[in-house]
Design a protein around this nucleic acid. Structure first.
Length: 156
DNA sequence: GCCAACGTTGGC
DNA sequence: GCCAACGTTGGC
């Protein structure tokens, strides 16, 4: 059992979109970074905890709790010439990019990035390191516990 | 819209 | 295999 933070632009897929989806589950597609892909391919397991993070928006932050809901499978968008995520070097025989399914589990309050930065318990998070741009990053048990506590308590 | 930081590409 | 040039990310 591991924990992850996964970034999504809410204009594309928000946590509310996941809640409204059938079975509260969506395919996590469009990852085009090898390190993030390798996390999905090599380290994720069904049931792993996911912090659903909203990036590139007015108030970036953790929007909800989710979980990994499938094993990895080829990301369909890499084969679609019409897709923004099309990869001409990917073939059905040799897919380059993968997806996993993600299921919404719990919506706490919205936890803004500014509040995470101000919390000493979270200062080692990969997300918060200078220059860190990884769209999928590992979260420790301690960081996970601290964030769940913040999500479940009222605004401070 | 700016721009620092990072990742990828491709010539050599 | 180096590294300059280019493209992307993402907070501000």
């Amino acid at each position: 059992m591991r924990y992850w933070l996964m970034k999504s632009e809410p204009d594309e897929v928000s946590f509310d979109d996941v809640i409204k989806a059938p079975k509260q589950t969506v395919a996590w597609f469009g990852v085009r970074n090898y390190q993030a892909r390798n996390f999905m391919r090599d380290a994720m397991s069904v049931g792993d905890g996911v912090l659903f993070y909203h990036s590139s928006c007015a108030v970036p932050g953790v929007a909800g709790i989710a979980e990994v809901a499938s094993t990895p499978y080829p990301d369909a968008s890499q084969f679609d010439p019409e897709s923004h995520y099309h990869d001409p070097k990917a073939t059905q025989e040799n897919p380059r990019w993968i997806s996993v399914d993600v299921r919404a589990v719990e919506q706490g309050r919205y936890l803004p990035l500014t509040e995470m930065r101000a919390n000493p318990a979270l200062e080692d998070m990969v997300l918060l390191q200078k220059g860190s741009r990884l769209s999928i990053s590992p979260v420790t048990q301690g960081q996970w516990n601290a964030i769940l506590k913040l999500l479940r308590e009222g605004k401070r």
